[in-house]
Simulated scan of single mutants.
Amino acid sequence: MAGTLREGPFEGPLEDALAGGPGSALRLYWLGQAGFVIDIAGRRLVVDPYLSDSLATKYRGTPYPHVRMMPAPIAPAALTHVDFVLCTHAHTDHMDPGTLPGLFAANPAAELIAPRAVRHAALERSGLDAARIRLVDAGERIALSAGLHVTPTRAAHETLERDEAGNHRFLGYGIAAAGVTLWHAGDTVPFDGQVGEVEPLRPDIALLPVNGRRPELSERGIAGNLTLREAVALARSVGASAMIAHHYGLFAFNTADPEEIDSTAKSTDDPAVSRARPAIAFEWAPG
């Protein structure tokens, strides 16, 4: 669907901006790292919320202490009117035991959507019973409500991985409603077949991680993502007219340079590149 992704600041805390619940327009708010609030077709989706300091506690005193560079923009219990929470994989900054129980307690009707390959982690970290969890794998298009659909896609965080049953451990999500589609790629690097899988979804907006990858981190089990240049090329290849760069600015040892993102945004118009930022709302304007 032809349109323009507009961005602008909102006043006050994020809690106030979200207090009225979702409207019919597509609006996005960044939670930090890969986390987003997505209001679409009258529903509120939350993707990969990390709103605690659970990783700082886990890695205190190690070479990579996971101390936050930016505060959580909202408390889990203050994030309300949520219909669905989508987790792309089981790394803690995407499926956080310090965030999910409080978020679901504040939204007792909300459901969790997660990769089938990480069922145990989804149950354990969310605190939900199985009836409130939808487990999915790549290619399994599901309806969330009338006219709102999600299609999981494969992701390679740095490799494509499957469980013993063949289910993918890392996913992205194509989210479509009211003639607009956005694609949250999950944590991924480029891989053979990626463009051919995503292009048929006809994404208008691509939400892509841009912190790159470094051998010294990969060797310690800290998997990397797309570089900024790779992300722009991927967004262009799948036909997205707009791209939001994210997965930076949370942990100092594993981030990207915001000035480089902004410079790329100024010099690139295919796709139009934006940088996810706190206190900024993105809105899709059809046209």
Score class of each variant (00 low, 15 high):
Ala2Trp: 05
Leu5Thr: 10
Gly8Arg: 15
Glu11Ala: 15
Asp16Gln: 08
Gly20Gln: 00
Ala25Met: 10
Leu26Ala: 04
Leu26Ile: 04
Gly32Phe: 02
Ile38Asp: 01
Asp39Pro: 01
Val46Gly: 08
Tyr50Trp: 15
Tyr50Asn: 14
Tyr59Lys: 14
Tyr59Gln: 14
Pro65Asp: 09
Arg68Met: 01
Pro71His: 09
Pro71Tyr: 01
Ala72Glu: 12
Pro73Gln: 11
Pro73Ala: 11
Ala77Phe: 03
Val82Thr: 00
Asp83His: 02
Leu86His: 04
Thr92Phe: 11
His94Phe: 13
His94Met: 15
Pro97Lys: 08
Leu100Asp: 02
Phe104Asp: 06
Ala106Val: 02
Ala110Asp: 03
Pro115Gln: 06
Arg116Gly: 08
His120Ser: 09
Ala122Glu: 04
Glu124Gly: 09
Arg125His: 10
Leu128Lys: 12
Asp129Lys: 09
Ala130Pro: 05
Ala130Asp: 13
Arg134Ile: 06
Ala138Asp: 10
Gly139Ala: 14
Arg141Ala: 15
Ala143Tyr: 11
Gly147Lys: 02
Pro152Asp: 12
Ala155Glu: 05
Glu158Asp: 11
Arg162Glu: 02
Asn167Ser: 09
Arg169Met: 10
Leu171Lys: 12
Tyr173Arg: 03
Ala177Cys: 10
Ala178Glu: 12
Phe191Gln: 07
Gln194Leu: 14
Val195Phe: 01
Gly196Ala: 02
Glu197Ile: 06
Glu199Gly: 03
Leu208Thr: 12
Arg213Asp: 02
Glu216Ala: 11
Leu217Met: 08
Arg220Glu: 13
Ile222Asn: 07
Thr227His: 08
Val238Gln: 00
Ser241Pro: 02
Ala242Pro: 11
Met243Lys: 05
Ile244Ala: 03
Ile244Tyr: 03
Ala245Arg: 08
Tyr248Lys: 00
Thr255His: 00
Pro258Ser: 05
Ser263Cys: 15
Lys266Met: 15
Thr268Val: 11
Pro271Arg: 04
Ala272Asp: 07
Val273Asn: 02
Ile280Thr: 15
Glu283Asp: 09
Trp284Tyr: 12
